[in-house]
Design a binder for these strands. Structure first.
Length: 229
DNA sequence: ATGTCGGAATTATTCCGA
């Protein structure tokens, strides 16, 4: 299964046919120009949620599909812009709404995956700034406590389960030559409930995907990929 | 050098969000 974020397209623009030709079903929660999320799967799924209730003003940022016994949610969490911007408070409230939603709808005893762009560095190890980044946006106690609240709903950070000390990043700014200077952040996660962790065989961040190929502009994010038994 | 990129608003340039 694949979770996609920042589709930047309305539902009618989503390439269902092209994906069908390569063997994927798609559940889509799109929006013109900004945001938008989707779940791809080999088997058809049942879409349980499109959007986060009460947070519609922040755009299309959540979709949940159940496929073959796995309840798969992908999210594009708000960026927050700056500590001073009103969107920072909205970001925190969005995380709280997600946590509340999981408390009601989540079932950690089942196979659950929560993945996507969380726009938060969980720890100094997850930022090229290291300890010097503490307190900056993506690195605040306020954001980290909201992220921790999601973990406390029964989710584990699959990358850290298998790589407790690795300094790998999933996002590099387009500006400043950040990718080539190693100036990245690990803000994209695959979170899994205990039954998923028990099946976890490998999890890696595909850094090569961030490299420029031919005349194509890469995403500023690299995909996080896990294999399950 | 807030040094990149893509989309929107508007019509080639500016702004905005990330």
């Amino acid at each position: 299964m694949v979770g996609l974020q920042e589709l930047k397209a309305s539902d009618d623009k989503f390439p269902h046919e092209a994906l069908s030709e390569v063997g994927y079903h798609a559940a889509v929660h799109g929006q013109k120009a900004w945001n938008g999320v989707a779940v791809l799967s080999r088997e058809p799924g049942e879409t349980l949620e499109r959007g986060l209730s009460g947070q519609e003003d922040l755009g299309a940022r959540l979709i949940t599909t159940r496929v073959g016994g796995i309840c798969f949610t992908t999210v594009y969490c708000p960026n927050g812009k700056t500590l001073e911007h009103e969107d920072f408070g909205r970001k925190l409230a969005w995380f709280e709404a997600l946590s509340d939603h999981l408390a009601v709808r989540g079932d950690p005893g089942a196979g659950e995956i929560l993945c996507g762009d969380f726009n938060v560095c969980p720890a100094a190890l997850d930022s090229w700034h290291g300890e010097a980044g503490e307190g900056a946006i993506f690195h605040t106690v306020e954001e980290r406590s909201r992220l921790q609240a999601l973990f406390d709903r029964g989710f584990e950070d699959l990358f850290r389960v298998l790589h407790p000390e690795a300094r790998d990043y999933s996002w590099w700014d387009y500006r400043h030559g950040a990718f080539h200077k190693g100036q990245g952040l690990r803000i994209d996660f695959l979170l899994g409930s205990r039954p998923i962790v028990d099946r976890l065989r490998s999890v890696e961040i595909d850094r090569d995907y961030r490299k420029k190929r031919d005349d194509l502009t890469p995403s500023d994010h690299a995909p996080v990929v896990a294999d399950l038994d």
